[in-house]
């Protein structure tokens, strides 16, 4: 913690960064929330621990911060994947972000902000970026952690085994719950569109009503828009007040991207984006 605070102070005092997007302790002992540090006193409030579940990369494209000078950001390996993807998609300039990379030992699974269960978060299981792939400064050390079984992979396999009708029923029961609060979109670092397709009214592509039909179009189209782009931070599923297993959709699309195109989003600054790159050799036979 001291290392993080000292680094933050140094960056702010010598004007390397204009501000630092990090975490501070919230009300109650087991919570952190996104916090913007602008001076040394603020820097002393920064924390990093297993409760730092938020992917702060979402703030980098917001108009309050974007293009306003070099922004420092406290980022776990998974958050850095989002930053890499944002740079790759030309949403942020890599010279305008200063990554304080955090060696990460996993975040807790969060039912809601009251943290009743403190098991390892789904997104941390089989994590390959406990040390971020890109950083300007690296803080902390990794240690061995106990990882539970990958239940998400199991759940996907189970649904894959169902026939089309039963799969439809499964997702209908999930999407029926959706209340169109758009927390999934707002919290997603890669949902940065100035105008989301669901808000377009001329013509209206997606019904804004939260009935099953409108919910299907919204959730499926969002999953498609994130195909080959989702970095798997699991934020959408974490914040969904209706507990819709959105990670199943996103993980499934990632599996396809990996299998068919040997592509994983947010891994390296050197690999061009999947959907932004035309390749004559791209396979098409997966379209059924």
């Amino acid at each position: 913690m001291n290392e993080l605070r000292e680094k933050a102070k140094e960056l702010l005092l010598n004007n390397t960064v204009k501000l630092i997007i990090g975490y501070a302790n919230g009300n109650g002992h087991n919570r952190t929330y996104p916090f913007i540090a602008r001076n040394a006193a603020d820097a002393n409030r920064l924390v990093f621990n297993e409760y730092c579940v938020n992917n702060l990369a979402v703030y980098l494209t917001r108009k309050e911060f974007k293009g306003k000078g070099i922004i420092g950001i406290v980022a776990k390996g998974c958050d850095v994947k989002a930053i890499i993807q944002l740079i790759q998609e030309n949403q942020i300039n890599k010279d305008e972000v200063y990554i304080i990379g955090m060696n990460c030992n996993g975040a807790v699974n969060q039912l809601d902000n009251s943290f009743e269960k403190t098991t390892l978060a789904q997104k941390c299981i089989n994590c390959t970026v406990r040390t971020p792939a890109l950083y300007h400064a690296l803080i902390g050390t990794t240690k061995d952690i106990e990882e539970p079984a990958d239940t998400l992979g199991e759940k996907i396999k189970e649904v894959e085994k169902l026939n089309a009708d039963s799969r439809w029923d499964f997702w209908e029961a999930q999407f029926e719950k959706c209340i169109k609060c758009y927390a999934c979109r707002q919290v997603c670092p890669l949902c940065y569109c100035e105008q989301c397709i669901v808000d377009k009214t001329v013509p209206r592509w997606i019904e804004s009503s939260a009935h099953t039909r409108g919910n299907f179009s919204w959730n499926i189209i969002r999953a498609f828009h994130l195909s080959g782009r989702c970095i798997g931070c699991g934020e959408c599923e974490r914040v969904c007040p209706m507990d819709i297993p959105l990670s199943m959709l996103n993980r499934k699309m990632s599996i396809i991207a990996k299998k068919e195109f040997d592509y994983s989003a947010g891994v390296s600054l050197d690999s061009p984006t999947l959907v932004g790159t035309y390749n004559m050799k791209d396979r098409q036979d997966f379209i059924k």
Binding site: I179, C181, Q186, P241
Partner: peptide
């Protein structure tokens, strides 16, 4: 204001928030 992401979670889970939209389908 600076950390709020502008979703509607708070309003939609609230037992008394009552604002609404009117749209044609």
């Amino acid at each position: 204001g600076e950390i709020c992401l502008g979703c509607g979670q708070c309003a939609f889970v609230c037992p008394v928030c009552h604002c609404f939209d009117i749209v044609d389908e």
